[in-house]
């Protein structure tokens, strides 16, 4: 699904944030990405999302070397990748329902067809009673769940989640983790960046550990 070959990254002329990463994300796999704050977890996810380019090395996504992908093919690939941003990136002028439905709307689906699915998912993440409010009045944890719902709604082939449980209490985190595991069982490759050790202990999975730019993998 995703393969990194000797990838190095630096921002501008700064130090190398990531150096010499080589690893695979296999289809239908589940992994945690962890490491101290500032270790480069978000940067690594952005590389996978192809929103930034490595300074060195090659990134392959869905079997294609990223720099060979034409701009007009990019949306097709992006539709197979669900993302939960660390800063949520909800659109503040749209309701929670509309935010979560956005990926479907963008794919040209009719609201009548997806309305029930969106409501079900919102119910499940505990936002059933908040779906007609605008994000600015949501709490941090509610925003986070909306962002997760938006990433999951179209059952992507790859899910990249950046600190998806950073703003919720442990029981809710466990519940969200169950959602990710469910998604993984239905065939999605899941990558969860987190530094919540408690969360990782709840599910035995591969761990990618970043430390001063290097990656260690615990299968």
């Amino acid at each position: 699904m995703i393969r990194f070959e000797n990838v190095g990254l630096r921002y501008g002329l700064g130090r190398e944030v990531l150096s010499d990463l080589s690893f695979d994300v296999r289809p239908k796999s589940f992994q945690f990405l962890t490491g101290p704050s500032g270790a480069g977890k978000t940067s690594l996810l952005r590389l996978m999302l192809m929103s930034i380019r490595p300074t060195r090395g090659l990134v392959h996504v869905f079997g294609r070397e990223a720099s060979t992908i034409r701009p007009d093919q990019m949306p097709i690939l992006r539709r197979k990748i669900g993302v939960v941003f660390q800063d949520f990136r909800l659109l503040n002028h749209l309701t929670t329902f509309e935010n979560v439905a956005l990926p479907l709307q963008v794919r040209g689906k009719m609201e009548a067809d997806y309305r029930q699915d969106v409501k079900d998912l919102l119910d499940w993440v505990g936002l059933g009673h908040r779906m007609h409010v605008l994000p600015p009045v949501l709490s941090g944890g509610e925003k986070q769940r909306a962002a997760i719902a938006r990433a999951l709604i179209d059952q992507p082939d790859i899910l990249l989640a950046d600190e998806p449980t950073g703003n919720v209490d442990p029981p809710l985190a466990a519940r969200l983790l169950r959602l990710f595991i469910e998604l993984h069982r239905s065939g999605t490759s899941v990558i969860i960046a987190t530094h919540d050790l408690g969360l990782m202990d709840q599910f035995d999975a591969r761990r990618l550990v970043l430390n001063s730019g290097r990656l260690q993998i615990y299968e």
Binding site: D117, W124, M131
Partner: peptide, 30 residues
């Protein structure tokens, strides 16, 4: 919050269920 269903991702189930089945009754969003 404690929804008895497995998951909303299980589309086959939620789509064939009668409308409103298995939903929390006090959900103001309904």
């Amino acid at each position: 919050m404690n929804d008895p269903r497995n998951s909303p991702l299980d589309r086959t189930q939620s789509n064939t269920a009668p409308a409103g089945a298995g939903k929390p009754t006090a959900d103001p969003g309904k």
